[in-house]
């Protein structure tokens, strides 16, 4: 469960990136976080993960405050950043084992999960190579695997499907569905409305730092009859 209560963030004292944003994500939900470029999506995700400190408001992850109990809160989630170019000179397997050590995953479990996800993402033969030699999509996969290896209850993903081949994108979407079926939470940002439409139980639309809509896509369509999802999105964000 994710509870975001009235968070705001201003850069350099001038640009208000996020303004009084509040939303609650119940366990068992997949939330698509949608908004134009520069709307405040990444800033919100960074505040949720402790990378940025909100100027005001609080964020609770499974009831644990990320500001007051950061280490405990960070155990609750796995985060996929928008750029997967990390630790490029480590081998894929070394990166996964490093993540397993950081999140205290026991030896048998980590081996079992690495094998399972490497097969799902077709990465088995690439694990012994340096991440530097990977394509963008493969880097994205190894970072996603680094999250899955510790099986966090909350997944926070910044544009997780960018660069993935259709097969891997399908595998990840299936994993998201299985994850929430177990009563856990997925919160991800995306630009692709079709993905949100097919995958999410609810969407949160943000523009200029403010939350414009939070609810089911069905309700949004009912509110705007005879309009395509694209038209609705443009209308909602333009009226902000």
């Amino acid at each position: 469960m994710i509870e975001i209560k009235n968070i705001s963030k201003t850069y350099s004292g001038q640009v208000k990136a996020v303004n009084q944003l509040s939303l609650t994500v119940e366990a068992g939900e997949i939330i698509g976080f949608i908004g134009p470029n520069g709307a405040g999506k990444t800033t919100t995700l960074k505040m949720m993960t402790g990378i940025l400190n909100p100027d005001e408001g609080e964020i609770l992850l499974n009831g644990i405050n990320i500001q007051s109990s950061p280490l405990k809160a960070k155990q609750q989630f796995g985060f996929v950043p928008d750029t997967p170019d990390m630790f490029l000179r480590l081998k894929g397997i070394e990166y996964l084992n490093f993540m397993a050590d950081i999140y205290d995953v026991d030896e048998n479990t980590r081996r079992e999960r690495i094998t399972k996800y490497a097969e799902a993402f077709q990465m088995t033969s690439a694990l012994n190579d340096k991440i530097l030699s990977y394509s963008h999509g493969m880097r994205q996969k190894i970072v996603v695997m680094g999250v899955l290896i510790h099986s966090p209850s909350i997944w926070i993903l910044d544009e997780p499907l960018t660069g993935l081949d259709p097969q891997s994108a399908f595998a990840l979407k299936e994993m998201m569905r299985e994850h929430v079926a177990l009563g856990k939470t997925v919160f991800f940002s995306t630009h692709v409305l079709e993905v949100a439409e097919k995958l999410c139980s609810k969407v949160a639309i943000i523009n200029k730092g403010a939350l414009l809509y939070f609810g089911s896509l069905e309700q949004l369509k009912l509110d705007h009859p005879n309009a395509s999802l694209e038209d609705i999105f443009l209308k909602v964000t333009q009226n902000a």
Partner: peptide, 28 residues
């Protein structure tokens, strides 16, 4: 360049052994 060669079982087990967070971070 990349080899794209699958790890054998021995190497896989060695690479996936538990080292503890501090040691793993230091090795990284």
């Amino acid at each position: 360049a990349a080899g794209r060669k699958q790890l054998n079982l021995k190497a896989y087990q060695k690479e996936t052994s538990t080292k503890g967070a501090f040691m793993s971070y230091f090795l990284k």
